[in-house]
Structure formats: structure tokens, C-alpha cells
Design a protein around this nucleic acid. Structure first.
Length: 562
RNA sequence: AGGGGCGUCGCCAAGCGGUAAGGCACCGGAUUUUGAUUCCGGCAUUCACAGGUUCGAAUCCUGUCGCCCCUGCCA
């Protein structure tokens, strides 16, 4: 396993743990990442994973992977497998420490019995609607259930009958006996167990009562002797309940610390919505390269190291925040720039005929795979009389500061000759530019500049027509047109879906050296961006390249302003 | 006065009584056979606001305002 070097700036959780270690409150720290196997992991989970595994690595502790699988109707083995794959991809290893809340069902049941014996829990026959109305509201206290004062013996009897399957779904629950007037709604006799005659993906039909999250999560942490239970802000209100439970049960009491969950612009982050995008087929699946899921980003070509760098860069705090997508993209570019071999590709081809280059002749240029790291080796690119250039590198009527090709203009072919556009050939009916007749200067090969010749400012990429490999290109853009798709009043987030989030180009070409590229291989197509071979390429011989991220483009930015 | 939390540059974020780190974005400029990369330089007299304590406050106290979360037999 590739053990990542963990980067983590100072943050309040790290400081707190440092203090706990310094004061001897703990000799070793144990954290955990506790996903529910009901969906795929997304970049928000990556933040939590990097935090929990990162902290464990920094302080020489350990981090458990625990599946909080207490709701059999929503959870599936498929998700467990996908989650494990994603965490390993991110570069983290939980070793032997793979746990399941369902492994603790028997212990949890004994805990429930213990509460009943202490008169701190009871079996309640109210319907869910009744429980809701008895709960009161934010501003009004609740009312006690008429079943609240059943005897210990009766409660024990009822609970064991519940477990034995004597009652139908929803007919009874067990509740903690805390305080129906508490200003904290979580303390108004919360439900601990419900009856669910459902087959669980791990315990099959052994149980027909299942613990609620609030009765499983904290105790699971306790059972695993988690020193620091790190979770997101919305569980802050639940902490008093976990405290109450640990005290009532007289069990080990982990310390819960809450941090703000990640939000990213131009995407959504809730599992519910991501699932909707998948089931409504707005995307092709959980691993659609436009999804903020780890599987989507992996397929898109984001390096795991970039995701880790991102998680470090955004920090950890308690204030609600929305991170600009640009931060993630910058991390991806930074990682890819140093490790990605360069290549030339033409996305929207425009043919050029070099009129003074002999017909039938061709030559090869040997150029570095990476201009800054010659140790990465070299590649050869063929040149011939006909080449493709990208159509936006030619403008019949060039705007100001456009230093690419235009009628009568000169431009340098990357790693090749300087050419001049002598003639523009158009389709007589559509008036579209179909071909450019150019001439080359044989004295300018490989960057050479003869004495007295003025330097050309523009350099463009190209591919030799007879040597070009046809490929399909997938251009991805942000999934939504709104920075905060769920934040616009009275508008469904799906109405902000970007209709142009995927553009498929089917007439693109790459240099012949990319012939043997394998799924997942990444390249920088010079002047265009980073691309990788898609894992869903058809078995046909025409590969698909996903654009991972574009290069920074100050020219495009200037254009946008104009 | 229902409870809990948060408010430091456009977006994140250090800082924890001694006089505002860093990143992204943005703006200059240098180098460049990728308008990329790299490199330099600029970018909060001010920390939601108002009072108070102090020689000294983003940091302590009081009050005000704004935003987020909580009424699943989901997690």
C-alpha cells in the first residue's frame, strides 16, 4: 500500500489531541472513520478520512474503519466494497481494524437491558405519529408517554418479545427515559430500538429489532475505545445524549469533537442528492467523472495525492464554509504538472498543407516527455506535409493581442518549424474555413532562429495527419451553473444542472506515441490541459480521453473580459 | 431569552493578552519553443458591531446584530 506522507496544518482538533497527549490524558489516540454503507464516498468524506487517518498517523495512533450498518433497509454490500476501494485509493490503510456496528448488536442489546434494569429505558407502544406529537416543538416542552412508567419486569418481558419477533414493524420501540421537557430535543426520550423485520446484509435474519444510530454510534466508539470521536457539526446536539448514555451504561466515554463539513461550489454534496442524480440519470453513475464522488474523481483522473493535498489545504474548522472549486482544481494541476508526460493532441482539427514541403516526405523530431524533467525520457513526433492544428488557433480576423495564426501571419509549430499562412481555403457554399495553405521555413527546425529573423510570439500544437491517432475526447465542466445549487430560494437544485457539463468530441487526434496508452494513464496535452484514458473505454481501438482539468488560460480569461 | 454552534481580506484559514501566518482568487512584472510551469512584487492600521477591563485586546467581560443546525421508529 502506498503510505501517503500526511500533511496537516495546525487546527483545533490537532491542537487538542496534542494537549491530551502532553497531559497524559491519553497515551495513544484512536480515531475512526464511520461511514454508513448506503452510498458512495465523496470529497466531503475524503476530508474526514484525511483528518481521522491523518491524525492517527501523525500521533502514532490508529484509525479504525467502522461501518455504521444499523439500518438494513438502506444498506448494501456493494457500498461496503466501494467504500473500502475508495479509502485504499486515497492511500489509507486500516489494517486489522475493520469493524461493523452490526458486530455489536448483541452487546447493544445487553446495554438496552441494562438501561431497563436501571429504570432508564422503557418500551413504548405509541405510534410514530404519536411520538412526534408527544415530543412537543422547538419552543414547547413535550409530554410523557403513557407507557413511560411500565415496570422493569414488564419492560424486560416486552423487550425480549420484541427481539423474538412477537410484534410487527412499528408497533413498539424502546426509548430512553430522560426528560420530555428538555430544550434539547434529542433528550426527549429518544428512540433506542425499533422493530424492523428486514434482512440485514451481514446479520441476515438474526435480528428483527435494530438499534437507532444514536444508540449504536457512541457505544460503538466506546467499545472500540476510540479516544477522539470526530464528527460533523450537526451532531453537536447529540453529544449530551451520548454523554448521558455512557454515564448511564457506565462504559468508557470517548470524547466527541465536531468540525464543519465540506461544501464545494458548483456541486452538491449530500448522499441523497448524489443518489438522485444517479437514479434520475442526470449522470451515468456514481463514478461519472462529473460527480464529486471519490470514484468519479478517480475516473476523471484526479490523483489521490491531489485530493489529499486539497484536504490539507482547506483546513479544519467549525464555521460553515464553501470552498471554491478552483482550490481543488489548483491542487490537481499542481500534482499533475510534475508527474505527467507531455503530448500533443488536436481537439477540433483544421487541416494545414505545407505547400513547400515535399510530398510523401516525413521526418521525426525527438523531444522531451517533460520539458523540465529530462530524466522522464524522450519521445519522437513525426512531421509531414499535412498537419492538423486546433481550429481556435486560427482566426481569419485576429483580435488584438492574438498571436496565433491568421492570414499572412507566422507562427511556430511546437517543437517544429515556423510556418506562414499563405492562403485560406473555404467551402464555397458554407463559407467555412476548411483548410490552410502554408509554407514553412526549413531553417527554423527545433526552435532554431536564423540570424536576423524576428522571433514569432505564437507557438501552437499540431499533429501530423498521416500519423495521427483518432480518439474521442470527453470535455467535462462543472455539474451546475450555480455556485450554490441548493441555496437558491424556491428552485430545485436540479434546475441548475449545467447542460454543457459534458461535451464529447469525436474527431480529435493525438500524436502516435499515445498508441499504447493504458486505462488511467494521464498526459498533459500541451496548451490544452490534462487528460487521462477513460476506464470505460469501449473495447474498440478508439480510446476515450477524459479531460481531467484544463490548463490555466489567461488568454481565454482576457477574451471573456472583452 | 427554546436549545446548540459560528462570525479574522472575494473564498478558506493560522492566531488563544504584546501589536494580523499561509493558500486559492485577483493585480503588476521577470523568465519561457506550452498565453502553461517557475519566479519576484502587490493585496486586512484591522479581526460582525457597540461598549468595558488593560500600559497593551482579534484574543478577556457585557450587550447587539447576522448566519447555520435541531421537532426521522435516517445516519
Amino acid at each position: 500500500m502506498n503510505e501517503p506522507t500526511v500533511q496537516m496544518g495546525p487546527n483545533f482538533i490537532r491542537n487538542l489531541i496534542e494537549e491530551d497527549l502532553a497531559t497524559g490524558k491519553h497515551d495513544m489516540i484512536i480515531t475512526r472513520f464511520p461511514p454508513e454503507p448506503n452510498g458512495y464516498l465523496h470529497i466531503g468524506h475524503a476530508k474526514s478520512i484525511c483528518l481521522n487517518f491523518g491524525l492517527a498517523a501523525i500521533f502514532n495512533g490508529r484509525c479504525h474503519l467502522r461501518f455504521d450498518d444499523t439500518n438494513p433497509v438502506k444498506e448494501e454490500q456493494e457500498y461496503i466494497d466501494a467504500i473500502k476501494t475508495d479509502i485504499r485509493w486515497l492511500g489509507f490503510d486500516w489494517g486489522e481494524h475493520e469493524y461493523y456496528a452490526s458486530d455489536y448488536f448483541e452487546t447493544l442489546y445487553r446495554y438496552a437491558v441494562r438501561l431497563i434494569d436501571k429504570g432508564l429505558a422503557y418500551v413504548c407502544d405509541l405510534t410514530s405519529d404519536q411520538i412526534r406529537s408527544y415530543r412537543g416543538s422547538l419552543t414547547e416542552p413535550g409530554r410523557e408517554s403513557p407507557y413511560r412508567h411500565r415496570t422493569v419486569a414488564e419492560n424486560r418481558q416486552l423487550l425480549s418479545e420484541m427481539r423474538a419477533g412477537s410484534y410487527p414493524d412499528g408497533s413498539k420501540v424502546v426509548r430512553a427515559k430522560i426528560d420530555m421537557a428538555s430544550p434539547n430535543l434529542n433528550l426527549r426520550d429518544p428512540v433506542l430500538y425499533r422493530i424492523l423485520h428486514a434482512t440485514h446484509h451481514r446479520t441476515a435474519d438474526r435480528w428483527c429489532i435494530y438499534p437507532m444510530y444514536d444508540f449504536a454510534h457512541g457505544q460503538s466508539d466506546s467499545i472500540e475505545r476510540i479516544s477522539h470521536s470526530i464528527c460533523t457539526l450537526e451532531f453537536e446536539d447529540h453529544r449530551p445524549l451520548y454523554d448521558w448514555l455512557c454515564e448511564a451504561l457506565e462504559i468508557y466515554h470517548p470524547q466527541q469533537i465536531e468540525f464543519a463539513r465540506l461544501n464545494l461550489t458548483y456541486t452538491v454534496m449530500s448522499k441523497r442528492r448524489l443518489l438522485e442524480l444517479v437514479t434520475d440519470q442526470h449522470v451515468t453513475g456514481w463514478d461519472d467523472p462529473r460527480m464529486p464522488t471519490l470514484s468519479g474523481m478517480r475516473r476523471r483522473g484526479f490523483p489521490a495525492a491531489a485530493v489529499r493535498a486539497f484536504c490539507d489545504r482547506i483546513g479544519v474548522g467549525k464555521s460553515d464554509s464553501v470552498i471554491d472549486m478552483g482550490v481543488l482544481e489548483d491542487c490537481v494541476r499542481e500534482e499533475l504538472d510534475s508527474c505527467t508526460p507531455r503530448a500533443m493532441a488536436v481537439l477540433r482539427p483544421l487541416k494545414i498543407v505545407i505547400t513547400n514541403y515535399p510530398e510523401g516526405r516525413s521526418e521525426e523530431f525527438t523531444v522531451p516527455k517533460h520539458p523540465k524533467y529530462p530524466e522522464m525520457g524522450s519521445r519522437t513526433i513525426p512531421f509531414s506535409r499535412e498537419i492538423y492544428i486546433d481550429s481556435d488557433d486560427f482566426k481569419e480576423d485576429p483580435p488584438k493581442k492574438f498571436f496565433r495564426l491568421g492570414p499572412g501571419r507566422e507562427v511556430r509549430l511546437r517543437y517544429g518549424y515556423i510556418i506562414r499562412c499563405d492562403e485560406v481555403v473555404k467551402d464555397p457554399t458554407t463559407n467555412e474555413v476548411v483548410k490552410l495553405m502554408c509554407s514553412y521555413d526549413p531553417e527554423t527546425a527545433g526552435g532554431k532562429l536564423p540570424e536576423g529573423r524576428t522571433k514569432v510570439k505564437g507557438i501552437i500544437h499540431w499533429v501530423s495527419v498521416p500519423h495521427a491517432i483518432p480518439v474521442d475526447i470527453c470535455l467535462y465542466d462543472r455539474l451546475f451553473t450555480e455556485p450554490n445549487p441548493t441555496g437558491v430560494k424556491d428552485v430545485d437544485y436540479r434546475d441548475h444542472l449545467n447542460p454543457n457539463s459534458l461535451e464529447v468530441l469525436t474527431e480529435s487526434y493525438v500524436e502516435p506515441g499515445l498508441q499504447g496508452a493504458k486505462v488511467g494513464d494521464s498526459f498533459q496535452f500541451e496548451r490544452l490541459g490534462y487528460f487521462c484514458v477513460d476506464s470505460h473505454s469501449p473495447t474498440s481501438d478508439k480510446p476515450i480521453f477524459n479531460r481531467i482539468v484544463s490548463l490555466r488560460d489567461t488568454w481565454a480569461k482576457l477574451q471573456g473580459e472583452g
